[in-house]
Structure formats: structure tokens, C-alpha cells
Amino acid sequence: MKRILSLERIRVLFVETLVITTGMLFGIGVEGIIFRLIGKSFVLSWYQPMAIFLTAFVSSIVSVVVFADEPKTRGRAITRMALHFILLFLVISLAGYVFDWFSSVGMYIGMALIYCFVYIFSWVSNMYILKKDAQEINEALKDIRDDE
């Protein structure tokens, strides 16, 4: 428990909550513009901003708990990511049900597809950034590496 609640994890929890909240509000903003462009009405209920914040907070807790320890093998890393993907989807589905984010099966499938797209996009972006970091590090290592 102490390991999960370290200061660093609380900082990550706070930052992730803000990032997810911002992302979701941005998504709703885009949705509003699209609705306006196609001539449909768009109304945001009074509780939705707080619902988004709560969902972001719970999602961040899931992330912090799932990634509390570093996986030691590639297999564990894959399992952990799959678990994270499923748990986050459950959180978002439950939030969607409680806060009326979808009113039909079609809308639910649409939300699931958007979730998959955002998750995969984030993962690919992270891997790309890490690959670039690895390339830069390998270049820099050439200058300081010991000869053996």
C-alpha cells in the first residue's frame, strides 16, 4: 500500500487525471462542433464536467495500481497492458452507463471504437517516442563507452 501511495504516484495520479479530463473535454468540444455543423442540437448536462473528472480520476487510479511495479518480462508487460486496457474499458463503460453517455447499442459500440482508437494511438505514440529516445541514447553512448 505504501508503495502504491508514494508521493511520486500521487503526482502521477494528479497529472493523469488532468490529462484525461482535458482530453475528454476536448473530445466533447469537437463533438459539439460536429453537431453544430450538421445542424443537430448539442446539450451538455450540468453534471457532465464533474462526471468526466470522476471518470478520469478512477481511470488514473486503475493505471497507477496496474503499473505499480515494473514488469520483469515481456510476457508480463503484455499481460499488464491487456489488463489495463480491459479495466479502463470497464471503468469507461460503467461511467457511460451511470452518466448517460450512450442511449443505444450503436452509440456504445461507437464509444468502444473511439476508446480503442485513443488507447492504440497513445500506445503507438509512446513506443515511437521511446524508440527515438533509444536511438539518441545509442548515439550518445558511443562517445563515453569503455573499450573492452
Binding site: P71, R80, M81, N126, K131, D133, A134, N138, L141, R145
Partner: peptide, 12 residues
């Protein structure tokens, strides 16, 4: 360190 490579779980 001879080299690094990126790995699943945002590790090197």
C-alpha cells in the same frame, strides 16, 4: 552499456 532498445511497458 553497449546499446539500448525500447521494450513493452515503456522500458528500455
Amino acid at each position: 552499456i553497449k546499446s539500448v532498445r525500447s521494450e513493452m511497458g515503456s522500458r528500455l
